[in-house]
């Protein structure tokens, strides 16, 4: 039981590292939290709500995202979109990611 949990934690840590990049990459156009969650899941990355929402707030506090409340279907939704600062950071993160993938492919092949 404990062993399974620790394996799950390792996998979780591994995935957590890519969520920031995944989130920034998918917010070129505005999305609200739940639509982003589904978008990421459709692309194959299941993210827990408890991870995504605080992350969105943190990225906004860091100036990498901007958000605005919109009233849709009688329900207010908070839309997030990548900021100018986030747009500057994204290519650097993509390059870093490509480097990591290359190195890890070499190591694991």
């Amino acid at each position: 039981m404990a062993k399974t949990e620790s394996i799950e934690n390792v996998v979780l840590e591994l995935r957590r590292g890519v969520i920031v990049l995944a989130t920034l990459s998918q917010l070129g156009s505005a999305e609200y939290g739940y639509s982003l969650l589904k978008k990421l899941a459709d692309l194959g990355l299941d993210v827990d709500q408890g991870t995504l929402y605080p992350l969105l707030r943190r990225l906004e506090a860091q100036g990498l995202l901007e958000s605005v409340w919109k009233l849709e279907e009688a329900r207010p939704r908070r839309y997030y979109v990548i900021s100018a600062e986030g747009k500057k950071l994204l290519p650097k993160m993509k390059k870093e990611w490509a480097g990591i993938v290359k190195v890890m492919d070499k190591m694991l092949s």
Binding site: Y32, G33, R75, R77
Partner: peptide
């Protein structure tokens, strides 16, 4: 935001 997400 939480209420909006749960409704969604």
């Amino acid at each position: 935001e939480l209420k909006s997400t749960l409704e969604d």
